[in-house]
Design a protein around this nucleic acid. Sequence first.
DNA 1: AGATTGAGCGGCA
DNA 2: TGCCGCTCAATCT
Length: 165
Amino acid sequence: MIVKANNYFVGMIFKGNRLVKNTIPLKREEIFKFFNDEVINNPKEEYMEIAEIILKLYFGEMSDREAREIINYRLEVPNFTKKVLDIVKEIEFGEVLTYGDIAKKLNTSPRAVGMALKRNPLPLIIPCHRVVAKNSLGGYSYGVEKKKFILERERLNKRFMNMNK
DNA sequence: AGATTGAGCGGCA
DNA sequence: TGCCGCTCAATCT
């Protein structure tokens, strides 16, 4: 399903009441490039709330840690991808790791780490945007500009986030 | 089952 | 700087 929240569109897939996949918030003209589903007009309140949380994550107004406590999600990925994403979950708001850092921890190659991140089904909730290349931003499925935007937002809002701890 | 493909990295000139 | 070779899980064919 696609849910509209504040002029943004968020794609989500639920199994039962568990979120198993989502997109980042996108404009109407962008969303269908990444997510072929129908826009729900009057979504259930709980779906609406999750879409709004994803919007807050996008604008750096909520920590991913807090979002993971609230959202009923399930991470359905192969074993190796799971290992990579478990490390990514531990990256602090406003901080970054490199592909190589994670590769070293898992005794694998940076390319393989990139492959795993590319198929993160829960972007923003699992902050794969916080993994960058050693000498550049690295890639991002939704475009590097979006990655840059999210990281910049988090950097600016970091002080605010710490105040709420 | 084998070939190709990256959201990368380090070395060398 | 720029190229070249290495890497390895996932995705084709």
